[in-house]
């Protein structure tokens, strides 16, 4: 072909790689491994729990476990009904929530709607420090301070009881409720508050009828998270609530929670592989299922009541 086009030279450009891209190949692999590790650990825990639980149910009928009203796996005559542990756990958790949700919510409303910026800046970190106190300290607080205090009101009360443990678990989860709820309320846009103020709403009306509904899904999540945390709490109940599996709703009696039972068995000399040893996995599985269901419930409630802004 004749070359009749005028320019005979073309400007040359080079698109070759001049840098090493090794890091771009290795870094994602390392990051992936880190992410995979936590997922694998979770799977591992569930598999262990599940296999041990299945083993356990080979020797104890499932229905006896779920609906039995007597829990005595270590002492003859043996009985494997989880209801006493379940009732003990729920008793403590409900008391804890009765304490923590109203107080936590009220302090969140105060911090987000009333407190001057300066006060909030000081109080919020302090509240969050409360969440860092070791739970064993709370346990001794319950046993040596709250219980004697309650005894002066209810003289018949035992040294170990559900009420004292429940109240202190509640105190422990207040920061969680207030901090997460406050985050949710602070995220509500200022413009919504101004809209309500401009209609003649008072501060309290704005907080209650605008901010709380708009932040409701966050508030519910914080409450459910606190509930799960209370159910799983171990040290306080092991120290202050007693070790008496007791099917009761009387908060003045000594009870045993699921977590405290697991501690009791783990610390003892129960032989591996025995039915007694299997109980802690069955109880652990029950705890896991409850918190799992709660989380699903929380997500459903949060979505159902979400007010978009």
């Amino acid at each position: 072909m004749e070359s009749n086009v005028a320019p005979s030279t073309t400007t040359k450009m080079n698109f070759k790689n001049s840098r090493s891209h090794l890091s771009d190949k290795i870094v994602p692999i390392i990051l992936f491994l880190c992410a995979a590790l936590s997922v694998l650990t979770t799977i591992g825990i569930v598999v262990t729990l599940l296999s041990e639980t299945i083993n356990f149910f080979k020797s104890v009928p499932f229905m006896d476990f779920l609906f039995g009203t007597k829990w005595s796996p270590l002492i003859e005559p043996k009985a494997f009904g989880i209801l006493p542990l379940l009732s003990g756990t729920l008793l403590v958790t409900v008391i804890a929530c009765i304490v923590a949700i109203p107080i936590g919510l009220a302090s969140a409303i105060y911090l987000s709607e009333y407190a001057p910026k300066r006060v909030r800046k000081i109080v919020k970190p302090i509240l969050e420090v409360l969440a860092g106190v070791p739970t064993i300290v709370y346990g001794y607080f319950a046993l040596t301070f709250v219980t004697p205090l309650l005894k002066s009101i209810f003289p018949s009360m035992g040294v170990f009881n559900a009420l004292s443990a429940g109240i202190v678990v509640g105190i422990m989860i207040i920061p969680m409720v207030s901090s997460l709820s406050e985050d949710a309320m602070s995220a509500v846009p200022k413009s919504l508050r101004h809209g309500a103020y401009a209609l003649g709403a008072t501060r309290f009306e704005v907080a209650l009828k605008i901010v709380v509904p708009a932040a409701f899904s966050g508030i519910v999540s914080s409450a459910v998270l606190a509930f799960s945390r209370a159910i799983g709490e171990t040290m306080i109940v092991a120290v202050a609530a007693g070790a008496t599996p007791n099917l009761t709703l009387n908060p003045l009696e000594s009870i045993q929670t699921m977590t405290a039972y697991i501690v009791q068995v783990s610390l003892g000399d129960t032989p591996h592989g025995s039915v007694e040893y299997g109980t802690i996995f069955a109880v652990g599985m029950t705890l896991f299922v409850i918190t799992f269901l709660l989380n699903i419930l929380a997500q459903y409630v949060a979505r159902r009541f979400r007010e978009e802004y």
């Binding site: 846009p189 413009s191 919504l192 101004h194 809209g195 309500a196 103020y197 401009a198 209609l199 003649g200 709403a201 009306e205 009828k209 605008i210 509904p213 708009a214 007010e307 978009e308 802004y309």
Partner: peptide
């Protein structure tokens, strides 16, 4: 009471995250 008698509309529309009906009824209910 002053703010009830002196209404205000803002730069950005700021409806409440509620239904149309409840937005209007908010003030009267208050």
């Amino acid at each position: 009471t002053l703010r009830k008698k002196v209404g205000m509309v803002f730069q950005q529309p700021n409806p409440f995250p509620k239904s149309i009906y409840d937005n209007i009824a908010y003030g009267p209910r208050l």
